[in-house]
Design a protein around this nucleic acid. Structure first.
Length: 238
DNA sequence: GATTGATCATAC
DNA sequence: GTATGATCAATC
């Protein structure tokens, strides 16, 4: 009770969803102010700010440097998703990095990707280029788990990619690969490199890659959750 | 506008 | 270097 939020564990998924719904309609500036946190001077240089702000607002402890879902006890991952006024996602969603080792190190069933995507609390964030950063509003949060078909599609994409990597074909993988889970660079800058299996017997040095959910896929999740978004004129709340 | 490739910040 | 959190920016 009181003003403190649970820190050791989250009571339940319902409570977390309720908290997320509780900040629906609020602007980033309002939420930041309530947490006594300043807004970034240059949002372009604070790409992770929104996600971290929302996690703090929900009372989810930060787990810096630790892999896995945000709330391990619930197997729940929290993702903010930038959407236009009509609800369409403006960006893809980062999932996790690729395992680029010389030998296969993961199976889909126990992969980091599957663990994170097993259950996700999506928190839509209004993202209109005409809107000041602090004026962006939080949308209506919702929880998602992959349907059997979605799970199968994710598995197929993931296994195809990891198979290519294991065969030393990382160089042939780009963002066009994968129906809903794609591969894109994920690095500090353009000079970042990591050792990966090569196409013959020699390791190669390549840019680190990550798995991302295509925006076309997350769009389908939003549209399923908010069917009326298809109507015109589109307008919040989502 | 959608997609792909590149990049920014922070903790460890 | 790895992990977390993503969005920017060039190109199609």
């Amino acid at each position: 009770m009181g003003t403190s939020l649970p820190s050791a564990s989250i009571a339940s998924e319902d409570e977390l969803l309720s908290r997320a719904r509780g900040i629906g309609g609020r602007t980033l500036a309002e939420i930041a102010a309530s947490l006594a946190e300043p807004l970034p001077v240059d949002p372009r240089r604070a790409k992770g700010f929104v996600g971290e702000l929302v996690e703090r607002a929900l009372g989810v402890p930060s787990r810096t440097g630790v892999a896995g879902p945000d709330v391990p006890s619930l197997g729940l991952e929290i993702k903010t998703i930038p959407v236009r006024r009509d609800g369409r996602p403006r960006e893809s969603t980062f999932v996790c990095t690729l395992a680029l080792g010389l030998l296969p190190s993961e199976r889909w069933d126990t992969s980091r990707a599957r663990a994170k995507l097993a259950r996700v609390l999506w928190v839509p964030i209004e993202h209109d280029r005409r809107l000041a950063f602090g004026d962006r509003r939080v949308g209506s949060a919702f929880v998602w788990s992959p349907s059997p078909d979605e799970e199968e599609a994710l598995r197929e994409d993931w296994e195809r990619v990891q198979h290519v990597v294991a065969l030393g074909g990382i160089a042939s993988l780009d963002a066009r690969v994968g129906s809903i889970l794609q591969v894109r660079p994920k690095a500090r800058d353009g000079v970042a490199r990591v050792r990966a299996a090569g196409d013959h017997d020699a390791p190669v040095s390549v840019m680190p890659r990550g798995f991302y959910l295509r925006a076309s896929f997350t769009r389908s999740l939003v549209e399923r959750t908010f069917p009326r978004l298809g109507a015109s004129p589109p307008r919040p709340p989502w």
